[in-house]
């Protein structure tokens, strides 16, 4: 049976830094270097080989990419110099674009909440970000989570390292231009995807 290369080609051409995957020699240094080893199903090495073997659904629906803590151990150790951390980030984004990423995966949701928090005013509001993240599974669960973390929150407040700003309404002055810039960037990416 011949391999179906259409998924691999799609990744090489359309996932950020995806073209590097062709260069992987399956040594496994990335897998051995990853601090989240106990928590992923597939290591970067395995993901890359699965892409070559055309296992689109298994790759895109996997939680493995969302385990990346961006520590860059894999990237500096790869004997072939592949930017592995960025490839894994690219695969996570690719799964989002293809609407295959698990919507309930907490880090995937955190990434969305952080981006929205940042885009709304141009900068992060840490209290609004934390509150929203804790509330992702509804208010009762959020209250429970908030109670679990109340000592941490209180110690941050007391040490002057958490601003009482649950609404996060401040905006950078050039916010209109900032929004226009991001809109333009998304348009260009969209156009490329369609062509």
């Amino acid at each position: 049976m011949a391999y179906d290369l259409s998924f691999a080609k799609d990744v090489y051409e359309n996932a950020e830094e995806g073209h590097w995957i062709k260069m992987c020699m399956q040594c496994g240094v990335c897998a051995g270097s990853c601090p989240l080893g106990p928590h992923w199903e597939f290591s970067p090495r395995q993901l890359f080989q699965m892409i070559r073997a055309g296992k689109a659904e298994e790759v895109l629906k996997s939680e493995s990419m969302w385990m990346c803590v961006s520590c860059y151990h894999c990237m500096v150790r790869c004997p072939r110099g592949l930017p592995i951390t960025h490839i894994v980030h690219g695969l996570a984004r690719f799964a989002v674009e293809k609407k295959r990423a698990d919507k309930d995966q907490v880090t995937r949701r955190f990434a969305k909440i952080l981006w929205e928090n940042m885009e709304r005013g141009g900068r992060i509001g840490e209290m609004a970000l934390t509150t929203k993240l804790y509330m992702v599974n509804g208010i009762p669960d959020g209250v429970k989570k908030g109670m679990e973390m109340k000592d941490q929150a209180m110690s941050m407040l007391k040490s002057g390292r958490l601003k009482m700003d649950p609404l996060h309404l401040s905006r950078i002055r050039g916010h209109a231009g900032f929004k226009a810039m991001l809109k333009k960037a998304r348009e260009i990416e969209q156009k490329k995807r369609e062509s």
């Binding site: 950020e16 989002v96 990434a111 981006w115 992060i124 950078i172 002055r173």
Partner: peptide, 22 residues
């Protein structure tokens, strides 16, 4: 008037060009 860089988690929602634009 600087803006946030979206740190090491911006890739997922932002994608390539919007993230680099920050």
């Amino acid at each position: 008037d600087w803006n946030c860089c979206s740190a090491s988690i911006g890739y997922a929602e932002g994608g390539e060009l919007p993230r680099l634009a920050l």
